[in-house]
Every structure is written in C-alpha cells, then in structure tokens.
C-alpha cells in the first residue's frame, strides 16, 4: 500500500478525515515556501500538496494564480520544486505533488517520476491530464512506485468516473464544484453525491477539494469524505502581508482550525 494509503487508513481508524494542505512551490520564495509548509505540518496538516507553479493554470482561481505568478517571477524552477518536496518530506509528513502537465512533459516524464520518487514525493495530482492521454505517466508512475491521482467531477459520466478511478492509486480527487480553486462561502451540495458515486466503484480513499476555507467547512466535508483538501484559503494567509512571520502566524492558526475541523466530522 502507498504511504498516502497508510495515512488515510490511520485517519479512518481514528474516526476522522485527513487534512491535505496545498501551497505553491517557491511562494513567496523557495525558503519561504519550505517554512510555510513546515509550519502547516507543525500546526496539524497531515499531507502537504506541493503545487509546481505553471504560467497558465486553468484550474486555479485568482489566489493561487497570484501566488504562482509571484513564485515564477521569483525564478522558481522545477528543480527547485523537487528540492522543496525533499525538504518538506524530511518533516515526516507525506508530500503529494500537483502540477499541470506541460512542466512535466518538458522535464521528461520518466526523469520527473524518477526524481520525484528520489525526493520522497508519494505521487502526483494531475489537474489537466486525464487517463485518456496518460500512457507515459501510467508507465513512469508504475516504474517508480508513485501514486496517481486523477480528478473526477460532478459532470463525469458513470463510465468515465469508473475508468478514471480505475487508473488512480493512493487516493481519488473529487472536485466538489464545477469551477476553479478558491474558498467559497458555502461548500458544495454536489460533493457528497460525487463522493458516494466514487465509493460505489472503489475502496480507494476520496479527497474533496475546491471551496473549503474554514474549520466548520472542513468538518462538513469530513462528514462524507476521507480527505479534505484546502488550497486558496491557506495560500491567502501569505498574500498581502507585511512580512513572512505575520503570514506564517495566520497560516498556523488556519491550519490548526482546519485540523480541528477534520477531527469533528459532521454526521
């Protein structure tokens, strides 16, 4: 079983959901992003999702776009992202990577899988790679023992949902809403329906992302999902702050609130 699978099992045994926190590599700087992700782990985030910034992130809303732009303007490169993954993995928390497909294709799919595994990454979430186009990634992830998380959406047909889940390893990412990343006032009504559709075809854990920003929302999602994935709300803690320490304090506070939320699932 994958390391992520072990973490999900442990959380399930404890009667809670796993908290996955996302942060772009190199935001606000390479060192700053390592400090941020370390702070998230210390404050109770179970799994760190390191997003490798991309110039054209079509699944991301304004907060992560801005953070990605800042990271890229600061000169972060794929090799830096791998170093960040290695540093965060050294904290002992499982580290999953997320990025759009072109940076990986450019790096070389096999080389990226090799280097991601060597850095201690557990696997990859691919927001714009569907299994239909993923032959090279399927082979490379098998070769280096990496997890594969493809996305399912409320609009996925039953046939596509089953096909997509069949190609996943580690966990399945359910996009709670039809839209881009970004915290929303209310979590989605479509999400529980989608999660139950996934459960009908697999025993893999299901993480729900897009829209979660508070401890209460995390508790709601924890009521029906195995993992609660939070991105924009955490990233926003580090945007428009006077200095990194102020941002890290806000980041720790929100991480702790979310960690509390996933331990109090709404039933």
């Amino acid at each position: 079983m994958s390391r992520i699978g072990v973490a999900f099992d442990k959380a399930r045994a404890d009667g809670r959901a796993l908290l996955v926190g996302c942060m772009p590599a190199g935001f606000p700087t390479v060192e700053g992003s390592i400090a941020a992700m370390t702070a998230m782990v210390e404050a109770g985030v179970d799994v760190i999702e390191v997003e490798i910034p991309y110039s054209d992130p079509v699944m991301d809303g304004p907060v992560i776009q801005r953070a990605s732009d800042i990271a890229l303007a600061g000169g972060v490169r794929t090799a830096d992202a791998l170093r960040i993954i290695e540093a965060v993995a050294a904290t002992g928390a499982p580290v999953v990577t997320m990025t759009y497909w072109n940076p990986i294709e450019r790096y070389g799919v096999d080389a990226f899988a090799r280097d991601l595994a060597a850095a201690g990454g557990t696997g990859l979430i691919t927001p714009d790679l569907i299994p239909d186009e993923a032959d090279e990634w399927l082979a490379a992830s098998d070769a280096y023992g990496l997890d594969r998380t493809f996305l399912v959406a409320p609009s996925s047909t039953d046939a596509r949902l089953a096909m997509t889940v069949e190609h996943c390893r580690g966990f399945v990412y359910a996009t709670a809403i039809m839209g881009v990343t970004g915290a929303r006032a209310q979590t989605s009504e479509a999400a529980p329906v989608l999660v139950s559709r996934v459960r009908a075809v697999t025993d893999l854990p299901v993480g729900v992302g897009l829209g979660v920003g508070t401890g209460a929302q995390a508790g709601t999602v924890a009521g029906y999902a195995d993992g609660v994935i939070v991105g924009s709300a955490l990233v926003r803690c580090l945007l428009d702050v006077p200095d990194l320490d102020t941002g890290l304090a806000a980041l720790r506070a929100l991480s702790a609130e979310l960690a509390e939320g996933v331990r109090n699932p709404a039933r």
Partner: peptide, 20 residues
C-alpha cells in the same frame, strides 16, 4: 476519434470539461 493529428492534438483539460 480522440482528436489526435499524429502525435499532436488530443485533450489536456480538467475532467470537469470532458463531458462538455
């Protein structure tokens, strides 16, 4: 049928768009 012109084309999109 899947939109490939040789090694080019295809679909590199979020799953949410596939149905559309």
């Amino acid at each position: 049928a899947a939109g490939h012109f040789g090694r080019f084309g295809g679909r590199f999109v979020p799953e949410a768009l596939v149905a559309a």
